[in-house]
């Protein structure tokens, strides 16, 4: 009796979860099907599943057209760039914070922890002002006057480096603390210098946390549509998600072009890289979130 009950419960659970999964994935299915239509057919359709009469792939190829390629490349470049620096900074700072004793260490630690709770509303508009007044950039003089700073300048996608990275510093530090010092001491006795100790002894043992950092920053940077959306107006200097953001926000405005299939086609392409990152590094990404929760 109990066994039968348990079995039915399990089946109910599976069915319930499957329904939930369909709900969670439905928008993706909808965009994929929608992208197969042309604008006119889609406009006349109005169904929950826009299955095309005749499938077209033009809308996916739009991401690889002359308009689509530069943002696509920018997105890849920006993701690689920030992933590299985040990992590097997390290693350097995290290692030093975990292993070295020095005056003021507590102060740095407090700074790291406080930085994580500052609401970003306090910095959004001021950052915009600062970017526009940054000395020596975009025609500005040393006083920050005369030009437009980093607004509309592609460098704005690469130069800024906020305190978001400090979370990864903190995680790397915690992970170092759980690693006994013996290995490094042994390596040092064997005559390894700092760099060798770090690359040959420490890092191989810290691979999981590095994967956590790399996967999470890559995902975060790829999906950061808002920074380019806010600072860059030209599609060719922008990123793909930001370009989609421009199309998506104009859906509510008078701007005439409501080309949903094109929007969906671009969306489908821009989901692929983060999806691959997620599927391959799933374990680390989930671990990153969970550990941020548990340790943070």
């Amino acid at each position: 009796m109990n066994k039968v009950l348990r079995k039915t419960l399990k089946i109910v659970w599976v069915i319930g979860m499957l329904v939930l999964v369909v709900f969670m994935l439905y928008p993706f299915i909808y965009s994929f099907l929608g992208a197969l239509n042309n604008k006119r057919d889609f406009g006349n359709m109005g169904t929950l599943l826009p299955i095309p009469k005749k499938a077209e792939f033009r809308n996916f190829l739009y991401a690889f057209s002359k308009t689509g390629i530069p943002p696509l490349i920018n997105t890849f470049a920006r993701t690689t760039w920030y992933t590299f620096w985040n990992v590097l900074v997390a290693i350097m700072l995290g290692y030093v914070m975990a292993r070295y004793e020095f005056k003021g260490k507590k102060l740095f630690l407090i700074f790291i922890i406080c930085s994580q709770v500052v609401p970003s509303v306090l910095t959004m508009i001021p950052s915009f002002v600062m970017m526009s007044k940054l000395p020596f950039f975009g025609g500005n003089n040393w006083m920050g006057m005369g030009g437009h700073g980093l607004i509309n300048n592609p460098l704005v996608l690469y130069l800024p480096f906020g305190w978001g990275v400090l979370l990864w510093v903190f995680l790397f530090m915690q992970s170092m603390k759980s690693l006994p010092k013996d290995f490094e001491e042994a390596a040092e006795i064997d005559g390894c210098n700092f760099r060798l100790t770090l690359t040959k002894v420490v890092l191989p043992m810290q691979k999981p946390i590095l994967a956590v950092i790399a996967a999470n920053t890559a995902l975060g940077t790829w999906n950061d549509w808002f920074t380019p959306f806010m600072y860059i107006n030209r599609v060719k200097d922008s990123t793909l998600p930001a370009y989609i953001g421009m199309l998506a926000t104009s859906l509510q405005e008078m701007s005439g072009d409501r080309d949903f299939p094109k929007l969906f086609g671009l969306s489908c392409i821009s989901i692929i890289p983060p999806l691959l990152i997620f599927l391959f590094f799933q374990k680390y990404i989930i671990q990153g979130i969970a550990s941020a929760g548990i340790k943070g």
């Binding site: 999964v21 969670m24 998506a248």
Partner: peptide, 26 residues
């Protein structure tokens, strides 16, 4: 599989998936 599926909406930026809601809610 279920865990992965419920997580997937988060790996796409908000701007990328909002178009679907607009199209459905007309």
């Amino acid at each position: 599989f279920f865990r992965t599926s419920v997580y997937i909406p988060n790996i796409a930026a908000a701007a990328i998936t909002s178009g679907v809601f607009i199209a459905l809610l007309n």
